[in-house]
Amino acid sequence: CFCFKKNAKTAKLVLFLASETAFTVNEVEALYELFKKLSSSIINDGFIHKEEFQLALFQNSSMQNLFADRVFDLFDVKRNGVIEFGEFVRSLSIFHPEAPIEDKIAFVFRLYDLQQTGYIECEEVKKMVLALLNESDLSLSDEAVESIVNKTMMDADAKGDGKIDEAEWKEFVAKHPSLIKNMTLPYLKDITMAFPSFVLNSEVQD
């Protein structure tokens, strides 16, 4: 018995998303509640805008952050400037504890491939380190930043061509699994626990 209270189109989408992601129907419904909250925080139009994404992440809608921009861009698969519900669920599915690790590794590779050239280049690594330092209380001299970037490139760039390709990235992550720690959100395994009020109202049984 599927008694989702929204319209038939949304109900169909929920079933479809559950069939092609790591989430159950109940969990996709819980994500719909989260999506509704996020997508109506500034502009109530059924899409998550960049400002709404920033507000949810930083409690500040005008907070600029290179990495949040990259995550937003990857979630916005259609590249139309907003995150739709399907994009939200499919992207979050990669963060599910039971999602394939290869998908998590590939997502981070795309995230760090700032120019989308198919490689993480030395200059991109430096740009990201500087962005991280800029947003945090960490302080490093220019020499120290160069040293960290150069050492990392030496470790990760097995072919020594000055850029990290996807195969090199996979090997590097295998040696340093903590690099994809952010890619697993324990909440997602118990998403219905995170929204108990919703579960009480749900008539769906998986």
Binding site: L34, L38, A56, L57, F58, N65, L66, F67, A68, D69, R70, V71, L92, F95, L111, Y112, V125, M128, V129, A131, L132, L133, E135, S136, L138, S139, L140, A144, S147, I148, V149, K151, T152, D155, A156, F172, H176, S178, L179, K181, N182, L185, Y187, A194
Partner: peptide, 26 residues
């Protein structure tokens, strides 16, 4: 001060912008 022996990607992964758990905070 960050140790200079740190892996650049370890540093990068500490960005608040990559911490999506904030999306679930009520």
């Amino acid at each position: 001060v960050a140790p200079v022996t740190m892996n650049a990607f370890e540093l990068i992964s500490k960005s608040q912008g990559l911490n999506l758990s904030s999306l679930f905070e009520k």
